[in-house]
Design a protein around this nucleic acid. Structure first.
Lengths: 160, 160
DNA sequence: CCTCCCTTGACTATTATTGACCTTTTAATA
DNA sequence: TATTAAAAGGTCAATAATAGTCAAGGGAGG
């Protein structure tokens, strides 16, 4: 079954495989033109085939001489933790953060200093927003989970 | 994908790196002439790439023998940044965070990876809390500043 | 039919570039 | 000295060039 989507995916993958650093930089408009499709089709392909969970990261810039950069990165065992955070958003207490950070350190996913940074962002900072009208425990836990989640995704994406 | 803007930026950076005191003095008109562009283009590059958040200070003088002086400023302590965060809480936009993080990286206060973690916590995470009834821009900026601030304090406290 | 992808297009957001007009400083000259 | 022209640089708004988002519709397989 023919699919434009798959075509574009294959095309991009070929480009990446042919690049020395597993990174390509393209222009959305030009690519859309080559495939004679709507530009947003490219976004669809990027969102469904080149997201972090499939081991790619995408950066872009709008405006004159804008671009889309696609990079292949190795993925590892962090994914399940992200899923856990998604499922348990409103129950992520401070102590849970501490446990997770300890685990991440033990598993050598993060350095001790990075662990300290994470705790600063998800514990200390959230203890100092009493004035910000954001007091429900569940909401605070959710906020904590979102911050933690994004940090984890960042670790997942990271390549030296 | 050619970008005049990026070209001018690179050119200026080269000049600065080749100067003994990280300072260069140029003439807007002459530079604009070299790049065959509108003089105000130079102002645009200065405003977007060489502002304080990115660690540069620009001074200038008009009139006969006018000039534009661009200086890369080292910071030796993080406290001024923390003070800045306290004073400008409600105006700390995403782009300010990006610029500050880049600065911190260049000054070797943080690693590139730590920079990525900070951005995850203060940008990505805050873009995903629309449902958390926490939508005022100023409040969001404040929250961003608090998180950033705690992370910085953590870095300040950190000893290997 | 129903669902899940795919595909499109209208609308939005961001970044770069240019040009018209304004301000400041210096230098020549009345 | 006062005036004025020339030589800088500054500001701002309009336009162009990208990319992003979102909702609606289409079609193939169950």
């Amino acid at each position: 079954m023919y699919s434009l989507c798959d075509d574009i995916e294959q095309y991009i993958i070929k480009l990446i495989e042919g690049s020395p650093d597993q990174t390509i930089t393209i222009q959305r408009g030009r690519l859309a033109n080559e495939f004679d499709c709507a530009p947003s089709q490219i976004n669809y392909v990027l969102a469904t085939r080149f997201n972090v969970f499939r081991g790619f990261i995408v950066e872009s810039r709008r405006g004159g001489s804008g671009y889309v950069r696609i990079r292949r990165v190795p993925i590892d065992r962090l994914e399940p933790v992200v899923v856990y955070l998604d499922d348990n958003e409103e129950y992520l207490r401070e102590s849970d953060v501490e446990d997770l950070v300890n685990w991440l350190e033990r598993e050598d996913f993060i350095t001790a200093r990075e662990g300290a940074l994470i705790q600063a962002a998800t514990i200390d900072a959230l203890n100092k927003i009493a004035d910000l009208d954001f007091s429900s425990v569940a909401d605070r836990n959710r906020l904590r989970a979102r911050i933690f989640r994004e940090i984890l995704l960042q670790i997942l994406r990271w390549v030296e």
